[in-house]
């Protein structure tokens, strides 16, 4: 093989090995790993984040649960008839059966809550208290199937003091800091679910997918203890 021919052959091999092939492997491997092991990688990255991240995060998976399902709703329920949940406590379960969404429901939406289920923003209300209940969940875990919700679908919340039903009214994609996305001070009970959008985007996103639901049934709590 002549020197010129060898140089040309080496250039071709170099181009294949370090440019074309890596790109092909990159795309193929990314698709395989993301689709098959997305949640696993997220856990590994969180572990790395414990070492490298400067932001304080709670990576514990342990939490207290006060949730004991209620067989039948009680009439005339008062707030001092049951234990109100503290921050990061599981006190219920949220489900949207038609989308196969089932998650532990926490009061508070800190890391512990969002890692183990879905969480109510503690500046909003709880089911039965006649105002807006704002619930967040991760789009790659418990709220991944939120993308399949449709108007009219029922949403069920079971708590340690009663069982609630809501019906989906509409969905919207809005900026995370759009305060018109919810009315925290509403005087009518409503449930708002949200998660990051787009659903399969890796990395931080400014948009959120909001699901708005109307109250259907469940015990209303007398707020005077």
């Amino acid at each position: 093989m002549s020197k010129r021919h060898r140089h040309h052959h080496s250039s071709k091999v170099f181009g294949k090995s370090f440019i074309i092939l890596p790109i092909v492997f990159l795309i193929g491997t990314y698709l395989i790993i993301f689709l098959a092991f997305g949640s696993t990688i997220s856990m590994a990255v969180d572990a790395a984040g414990m070492v490298f991240s400067s932001a304080e995060k709670d990576y514990s998976t342990s939490f207290k649960s006060i949730f004991v399902p209620v067989a039948e709703n009680k009439e005339g329920l008062k707030s001092d008839d049951f234990e109100f949940p503290k921050f990061n406590q599981q006190f219920g379960e949220l489900s949207i059966p038609k989308c196969k969404i089932e998650a532990k429901l926490f009061f508070g939406d800190g890391d512990v809550a969002l890692r183990n289920g879905v969480g109510i923003y503690n500046g909003s209300s709880a089911p039965g208290f006649g105002s807006t209940i704002l619930v967040g969940g991760h789009n790659n875990t418990y709220f991944h199937n939120l993308k399949d919700v449709k108007e009219g679908m029922p949403v069920s919340i079971k708590t340690n003091y009663g069982n609630y039903e809501y019906k989906i009214r509409e969905t919207k994609v809005l900026q995370y800091n759009d305060s018109s996305a919810y009315d925290i001070g509403a005087d009518k009970e409503n449930l708002v679910l949200y998660t990051c959008y787009p659903f399969d985007e890796l990395g931080l996103t400014d948009q959120r997918f909001f699901v708005y639901t109307d109250y259907v049934s469940g015990p209303q709590i007398d707020r005077e203890g």
Partner: peptide, 28 residues
């Protein structure tokens, strides 16, 4: 009020890309 609830939080995207680049480089 509204939290970050996406797959990528802080180092997610960086580590994912680094891991994949490593796999690609080794293969090449």
């Amino acid at each position: 009020v509204v939290k970050t609830t996406g797959a990528g939080v802080e180092l997610d995207s960086l580590f994912a890309v680094l891991a994949l680049l490593s796999a690609a480089t080794v293969s090449g």
